[in-house]
Design a protein around this nucleic acid. Sequence first.
DNA 1: ATGAAATATATCGGCTTGATATAGTATAAG
DNA 2: CTTATACTATATCAAGCCGATATATTTCAT
Lengths: 179, 179
Amino acid sequence: MDAKTLCLGVLVMGDASGYEIRKMFEEGPFAHFQDVGYGSIYPALAKLSEEGLIAVTDTSGEGHPDKKVYAVTPAGRAEFRQSLARAPMQDKIRSDAAFLMFFAEFLDPDHLRTVYDDYLGFYRARVEVMQELDPEGVPEGRLFVRGLGLAFYQAVVTYMTENRDMLLNAGSGKADAAE
Amino acid sequence: MDAKTLCLGVLVMGDASGYEIRKMFEEGPFAHFQDVGYGSIYPALAKLSEEGLIAVTDTSGEGHPDKKVYAVTPAGRAEFRQSLARAPMQDKIRSDAAFLMFFAEFLDPDHLRTVYDDYLGFYRARVEVMQELDPEGVPEGRLFVRGLGLAFYQAVVTYMTENRDMLLNAGSGKADAAE
DNA sequence: ATGAAATATATCGGCTTGATATAGTATAAG
DNA sequence: CTTATACTATATCAAGCCGATATATTTCAT
């Protein structure tokens, strides 16, 4: 999914600035399955403006820092719909922690335990945060995706907890012997 | 994790060519949690060679297309170990399918059902493939990571199956009414 | 013998990533 | 009241990655 479509996705839910769009991916509803930074957002908003898919309202000098609020146009709405239809859909998972644990024999046991603890702690925290969310008035598609994310996090926590010893016993430094 | 470290990771398990490294991420043991393409692999191998971290053996004219087999040097092994220690570890999940399903109201019901079926089918297939793997002689770190991947895939399949109606009922096209 | 599929290396434009620069505003502490 | 800290906000840039493409040989089934 390219930055333009991600921005449109936020804007069809309501007007927003570049900064506000970023927050949606940093801590908001998209944080669990998409990401996009300022380096992509601002150029994307510029292009979308050029193409007439969004409209800008510059709200400078109104008691806050210069702020540009973007609103999606009817053409933008149509384009968003078409982008969704065009989209491929293979998930991309990039887990450096999994790569590390794969090479458990290469790590010293202390480091391995730290990696394990941090990783598990991170996912435990995610589960807790997501469980507190109030589903009041949230459309079903969004509820479904939230539940999917939660199911994923819970599966990781459960597996990590049940198989702690399998991983930590692997870090006995046998890899040094090679060659 | 940068391309250089990923290449080193493959090479510490055994000598390989660029093409063979790619296959490890396309269908091999890393396919479930990392990815790297030719556009990153060949430049990475060139740099690693320059730095003396890997050694090349050109095996042209031996009954197969030109082939360069790379082997990690002791310096490369040390560098790999240090890269692992340096690595951050926040997982990055990029799911276009989840983004689509989040906007279920914007999709027409047929398309939504297709997305659902494809997505579920894909993960079901993954589960089946992974369950067939033989754990004979595989180090514990790798077993652990394989189990983690399997747990994740199974959680997705279970959740998707149990909550099918929640998603598909959402595609009633109410989004058209807006504005 | 023909064509399709697999093996193999390499490059390139476009895009993303992560860091950095800049600057105004809010707020709590001293 | 002034200082420091955090937050809001836009923007850019180098480095690196991604996906597509070009090229060529070998293997294998038809």
